[in-house]
């Protein structure tokens, strides 16, 4: 046989080679081809190193300790459960809305406007700014993660045959759209036009992802990937994300620590 691809070798390692014949052919090839055998042995060593990375041990009574910690919470959850069964996603939605309301409160109330003097509030302006910068930074990181996964999806031949399921990324994009809108509105109010532009563009991409079919053919996936890449949105999000992190750091240095 010709030299197996890296993908075939990995599938072979995990016993995912479908045909017995194909497996036997790889067996024979590895026995006769030094280069492929060396490559396969290197793969084995890498996986062995990952396997050898230590995991902290938990003793035999660990399970009892976990039980002691969670059992009081089971009682609380049991009391709530009859409602949860009626509206299974309600608590998630309530949690998300609470976070949004809190963020909106912070955003509307606390984002420092360029021309505004610091008001005598209970939280210093720099601390307030930092709280929001942390939130925006986190949001941009999450968006970056979704975009990167979509751009990298289907990088191999496997996907060009069968298409791809983006429901996971789609759900995450959906979750990010509302928060993105809020941060964009806040940035608009404060006149941060660079951030507004990137968030505006990001929002369109996120909405597009959220509204795409969950199952994409390779062609559809390529189309989305090309649109993301043509806009350079991933790069822009990375740049603005690191700028926000820088501002966050500066705000952290200026902001007084603790209660003082």
């Amino acid at each position: 046989m010709t030299h197996p691809s890296e993908e075939q070798l990995i599938a072979y390692r995990y016993g995912d080679v479908s045909e017995t014949q194909e497996r036997a052919a790889i067996d024979r090839h590895l026995a006769s081809c030094d280069a492929c055998r060396t490559s396969y042995e290197a793969l084995q060593r890498v996986l062995a190193a990952v396997e050898a990375a230590p995991v902290p041990e938990r003793d035999a009574s660990y399970g009892s300790r976990v039980w002691q910690r969670i059992s009081p919470q089971l009682d609380q959850r049991e009391r709530l459960d009859w409602r949860a069964w009626l509206v299974p996603r309600r608590w998630v939605a309530v949690g998300a809305m609470a976070a949004l309301v809190f963020a909106a409160f912070l955003a509307g109330r606390f984002w420092p406007r360029p021309t505004q003097q610091e008001s005598a509030g209970p939280i210093p302006v720099q601390v307030r700014e930092r709280i929001l910068l942390v939130a925006v930074g986190d949001h941009l990181d999450h968006a970056q993660m979704v975009l990167a996964e979509l751009v990298n999806a289907g990088a191999t031949e496997t996907l060009t045959k069968g298409g791809v399921d983006i429901s996971f990324e789609q759900q995450r994009a959906q979750d990010l759209v509302e928060a993105n809108r809020l941060y964009r509105q806040t940035a608009t109010r404060t006149g941060d036009s660079t951030l507004v532009n990137v968030l505006d563009e990001l929002e369109r991409v996120l909405v597009e992802i959220a509204h795409s079919p969950a199952q994409l053919s390779s062609a559809q996936l390529n189309e989305i990937q090309q649109r993301i890449e043509a806009r350079g949105i991933l790069f822009k999000v990375r740049v603005i994300g690191s700028q926000v992190r820088e501002r966050e750091k500066s705000a952290g240095q200026i902001a007084p620590r603790g209660r003082s």
């Binding site: 993908e7 599938a11 890498v46 990298n152 999806a153 990088a155 496997t158 429901s167």
Partner: peptide, 17 residues
């Protein structure tokens, strides 16, 4: 993970790579 088999295989492959 809510993925199709092809996407799952691809995730494992990308990870190992």
């Amino acid at each position: 993970l809510g993925l199709r088999a092809s996407a799952t295989k691809n995730s494992v492959f990308r990870a190992v790579q």
